[in-house]
Simulated assay, not measured.
Amino acid sequence: MEHGEEKAQINYEAVSDVVPEAKTYQQEEQQHEQQLLNLLDEDRLQYAGSIVLGLSDALVELTGALAGLTLALQNVKLIALSGLITGIAASMSMAASEYLSTRSEITKKNPVRAAIYTGVAYICTVILLILPYLFFENYYLDLTIALTTAVIIIAVFNFYISIAKGESFRERFFEMAGLCLGVATVSFIIGYFIRQWLGIEI
């Protein structure tokens, strides 16, 4: 939408010398563009990096952990408990890291707000990924739902960012989804071998 607004403004500028009324329309287009940007919430865009950090780390780390735990433990309550503890601890760690990182940089971002965005994005992702294990007894089904949820989160967030910043949705989506699912696959395999190696039976 924003690109369309920019093209319209260029067209109005081109004809403004010939048609004086075009300047009025140009001003209206500028106001319209500003309204669109406000709808996208520029404050969140400013902290998009912090949100990306929380989301991407939670998606990659927790999907990997859940995949490994699913095959290693094969008990939904233990998987949910382990995943939740891991997720909460990691969210606080990531928030603290983002605070220190932002504070050490020359930026307009508030370190506390950056940390909050990172931590909240992380913990929300953790909750969404853990939920299936609290409702369904089939741990393979739970893992499938968790991975599907992860892909949906990646798609929604990257769509928002691609619209707001004019970046390629497909490239961002496949990169992030590939990392997430790749780590989950490797962790799933590792979980299997660890279970066999230690002879764990629960």
Rank of each mutant, 00 (worst) to 15 (best):
S50Q: 01
E42A: 13
N38K: 15
H32F: 00
Q31N: 13
E13R: 11
E29H: 07
Q26W: 11
L45I: 04
A22S: 08
A22T: 05
I10R: 14
Y47C: 00
Y47K: 02
V19E: 13
E28G: 05
V15P: 03
A22Y: 10
L45H: 07
I51P: 02
V18G: 08
T24A: 11
S16A: 15
D41T: 11
I51C: 00
L45Y: 01
V18H: 06
G49W: 03
E33K: 10
V18M: 15
I51M: 13
Q35N: 13
E29P: 04
L40P: 03
N38C: 11
P20K: 06
Q34F: 09
D41M: 06
E13F: 08
L36T: 04
Q34N: 13
L37N: 08
Y12D: 08
Q27G: 11
E29T: 10
V15F: 02
I51W: 06
T24L: 08
A8W: 02
A8N: 06
D17E: 12
E28K: 10
E13Q: 11
L40I: 12
E28T: 05
L36H: 04
L45W: 02
Y47W: 07
L36D: 02
Y25W: 06
Q31M: 10
E33N: 08
D41L: 07
Q30I: 14
L39V: 06
L37V: 06
Y12C: 04
S50P: 01
Q46S: 03
A48R: 03
D17K: 11
L36W: 01
L45S: 00
V19A: 13
A48G: 00
I51L: 03
A8L: 14
Q26V: 02
D17F: 04
L36G: 00
